[in-house]
């Protein structure tokens, strides 16, 4: 186990190195640089050149990359060009809201999707199955900016139940936090629920056809028990895989939901940073998201061993 963990964590290194390399050069290929973005239209050439020199943007790219890498390894992520905030606290500050939102969306998705998927599979080709599949496809085919605005119109304007947008830290005001969280979590959870429901349904169908479920039924074990105790246990693995992948992707994919609900997360922060050519923020954010993504994948694999003792870690 320890050896396995060590080797898995060691495999993080090339991936993170690769993502840092790609993000560094990709963002520099985008036309315009931080000095231009910050000083705006009216700045004269000398001011821009001075700022470039101050930010060391006049150095060769390789030197810039190695300098950045060296600083990051010693824990210094630099400062944002826009407003001069330190990058690491900025990222950590934005990671919290995004993690809370992603987690809530995952819960929404689990609560809706897994029961729906199981029921749809056990009652295949009935109205229940069609209804659940239809709802899931609605979720898949609605862009989140569109769904988000509909939810705001419905639950903030026409039925004034929930705030339309904004963020309240959970510790300062737990109820306020939850009321602000509901609509973005539903928006983000919808697409996730759709995919999870479909995966649950098909994994369950697979298992329900298997020999031991047939055997269990033949032995006269009641249907509900078969479904929950025998079938679902075995359908969990593909579902967990999907959830792991999606949760990781969520961290970066929440940008639209964050934009619509003014949720101060890392997705919006990164997109703004791309547009402002805020190199230090973009590189730091990509590195952080990639790390979390890889760690979640690792966690998913560990969950397998809990769910199914037959899976060996190799």
């Amino acid at each position: 186990m320890a050896a396995y963990l060590t080797s898995r964590i060691a495999s993080l290194v090339p991936i993170l190195f690769g993502t840092s390399l790609v993000s560094f050069f990709l963002i520099r290929l985008v036309p315009g640089d931080p000095a231009v973005a910050l000083l705006g239209l009216e700045a004269d050439e000398r001011a821009i050149a001075a700022l470039r020199a101050q930010l060391a943007l006049d150095q060769p790219l390789v030197v810039q990359y190695l300098t950045w890498l060296g600083r990051v390894l010693s824990g210094d992520f630099g400062r944002s060009v826009q407003g001069g905030r330190e990058v690491l606290p900025l990222l950590v500050g934005a990671l919290g809201p995004t993690a809370q939102l992603s987690f809530a969306a995952a819960i929404v998705s689990l609560v809706i999707a897994i029961p729906a998927g199981i029921v749809a599979a056990t009652r295949r080709d009935t109205a229940v199955d069609y209804g659940a599949s239809f709802a899931a496809l609605c979720g898949l085919s609605m862009p989140s900016f569109w769904l988000g605005i509909l939810l705001i119109l419905a639950f903030s304007v026409h039925l004034p139940w929930l705030p339309a947008s904004g963020y309240v830290p959970p510790l300062s005001d737990p109820l306020g936090f939850i009321s602000h969280l509901v609509l973005p979590a539903l928006t983000l959870g919808a697409a996730l629920a759709a995919a999870t429901m479909r995966m649950t349904r098909s994994a369950m169908l697979e298992v329900l056809r298997s020999d031991y479920v047939r055997t269990a039924r033949a032995k006269g074990i009641p249907g509900r028990l078969v479904v929950w105790r025998h079938a679902f246990r075995n359908a969990r693995i593909p579902v967990v895989t999907l959830l792991g992948i999606q949760f990781g992707q969520l961290l970066g994919g929440v940008v639209i939901t964050e934009t619509v609900f003014s949720w101060p997360g890392i997705g919006k922060l990164t997109v703004d940073a791309i547009f402002a050519r805020d190199y230090a923020v973009v590189q730091g954010a990509v590195l952080l998201t990639a790390t979390i993504f890889v760690l979640i994948n690792l966690a998913t694999d560990l969950v397998y061993t809990v769910l199914d003792p037959r899976v060996r870690l190799a």
């Binding site: 900016f145 705001i152 119109l153 339309a164 947008s165 003014s262």
Partner: peptide
């Protein structure tokens, strides 16, 4: 900050 124009107005209509 509420960047989308429609969402901004919706926030006013809801009293947020």
């Amino acid at each position: 900050p509420i960047s989308d124009e429609t969402v901004r107005v919706t926030n006013l209509r809801s009293g947020t």
